[in-house]
Design a protein around this nucleic acid. Structure first.
Lengths: 333, 333
DNA sequence: ATGAAAGCGCTAACAG
DNA sequence: CTGTTAGCGCTTTCAT
């Protein structure tokens, strides 16, 4: 049997209460007694049970992370940011993958909320407005990652996806490109929609005709959608909704004998680790994923501790990593 | 306040015990009463507290996953296998990254073991024999991933890293390569050591002279170690301890004007998603990471439920993905 | 400064 | 079949 607080109390010849005080660094414990207790703890190899503790306090030291798919290279970095910051603050994090399935997402939220976590970081791209109020009723701190909502009482950490995408397209236009196409992500996923809209707006502002394909955030989708585009269009540039799509598209282009960036320039989005390793190295919108994760935990923490009640929306700065697939821009890396 | 079991009991006009029975699908509850209770639960939106439950049962429905770094592309797939299987069985998983730091690893094991998890899946590459017995004393189910030990009472899920690596080098030799070099991972990390040893053995068996560099499991290490090799050696092939290293090395080779595979053939290890996207597409040892993860959970589960007590060691089959960086082999993908 | 006792939400004998 | 009664391990008044 693992030693309990009672074992320690007995060994140190004090009450459970005193041991509890020592554990919690309560200052009003006699120095001698404190030492005695600490020795007993040491000797027994005692560790307080987080479970009992949480029950007694009606709190939880674990935070839940719900994301689409840890296997998508954008998320591990974000998750790492979350975990590092969480551990630094003494929290433990539990993860669930939704595969962008709203049903699963709801299920996990319920599971986590009602069962064990003190707060939830939600990377949902598909949450509808109506679901939002349901979340509210859960009475549990939430931080939304990578999602923008107006007039919300939720905490949000994100970047300005619209502006970033707009700037990327603008850059292409400034380079003299007239035939810029776009491969988007899944319908209904907010970041995908936002980037697409930014693309459309930027094109319209320049009086250019947009060409869009919709797919999923994957290499395969990039590959097949690019082929589809090439069937009826001769692009000089591509803005891809994420890096994976960009890789697939580049492969498709090359398989048709076209050169990147000579024939077609490409800009991706996310700046996953591979962007710099790829050949040609990918120009892309650089999203501070780690930072987003770490910041999310900070917000969540202050909510969990009840230090703050007003909704806080943090918009972090994006940047650009100009590499080989697209000429120009300031070299940032 | 969240409703408790007592609220439900009152509303349904029964005792807590009965509600508890309903929750736990205890068959001996009158049908009518059961319905009344279920209605009350529904009406109140009641959800049992996992914390209280765990405390009462002295069990835990969460399993801990300790791995080097979720940011290393080999691990997300493994983690996904674990999470999927865990959720299927009603478990929740908490993750910690050790960055291969033995001190951190110990710390996390202690934290998890003493605090809240019912079992631990450990992807440790650095565990020393002496630490092993410490783990035993924790009295908590363990599954070791990706690590082989003789005569152990731990459950283990892995592939035959030695044989896989040996076969890879053999393949190169059979292709006629005489100057095969190897870039290994961090010292003391078991998989790195194993692959290196297999390389050395295969080379010796063929009467060839080995050339080894040691670094870390990263792109950067692959790049710089390859340059280092090129300074004093003219390889015709490289066996890299993982795919990331392979990518870095290929980049280094190309930066020196050498062609892959024409001048230098390359085989990596892991078969991360990106291996097939890379250009040239990487030939590599294909490790069934997802499967390893899922299997680990199965083993852990049977231990946690006490269905089994004998140490079980599962060695899954590896395969090879022959792609562009290395000629020959059967095309598997 | 320390101890006694109640209670966090649930489960598990034990009666009835 | 259902209710009563103890705890699970810890925290937290409230006395002392």
């Amino acid at each position: 049997m693992k030693p309990t607080i009672l074992d320690v109390a007995k060994l140190a010849n004090v009450s459970k209460a005193t041991v509890s005080r020592v554990i919690n660094h309560n200052p009003k414990v006699d120095k001698n007694i404190r030492e005695r207790v600490e020795q007993a703890i040491e000797q027994l190899g005692y560790r307080p049970s987080a479970i009992a503790r949480n029950l007694a306090n009606n709190t939880s030291n674990t935070i839940g992370l719900i994301l689409p798919d840890i296997t998508n290279p954008y998320f591990p970095v974000l998750a790492r940011g979350i975990e590092d910051q969480a551990h630094r603050s003494g929290y433990t994090v539990i993860i669930s993958n939704t595969d962008n399935d709203p049903r699963l997402e709801q299920e996990y939220i319920q599971m986590m909320a009602q069962q064990q976590v003190g707060g939830i970081i939600l990377i949902s791209s598909i949450l509808e407005e109506e679901k939002m109020s349901e979340l509210q009723s859960l009475q549990i701190p939430f931080v939304l990652c990578d999602r923008t909502i107006e007039n919300t009482t939720f905490d949000i950490v994100t970047i300005d996806h619209y502006r970033a995408a707009f700037e990327a397209v603008e850059h292409l236009i400034r380079q003299g490109h007239q035939h810029i196409c776009h491969i988007s992500g899944p319908v209904k996923v907010q970041t995908a929609e936002t980037r697409k809209q930014a693309y459309l707006d930027a094109m319209e502002a320049a009086g250019l005709i947009p060409v869009v394909r919709v797919g999923s955030f994957s290499y395969e989708a990039g590959y097949s959608q690019m082929l589809s585009i090439l069937n009826e269009y001769e692009p000089s540039a591509l803005f891809a909704a994420n890096d994976l799509i960009a890789f697939g598209a580049i492969n498709a282009l090359q398989s048709k004998g076209m050169k990147v960036p000579d024939d077609v320039a490409v800009i991706g989005c996310d700046d996953i680790t591979f962007a710099g390793m790829y050949k040609p190295a990918l120009s892309t919108i650089s999203v501070p994923a780690y930072q987003i994760g770490a910041t999310s935990v900070e917000l969540l923490e202050s909510r969990m501790k009840g230090v703050r009640n007003d909704a806080k929306q943090v918009v972090l700065e994006h940047s650009f990593s100009w590499r080989e697939t697209c000429i120009g821009g300031k070299q940032t890396r």
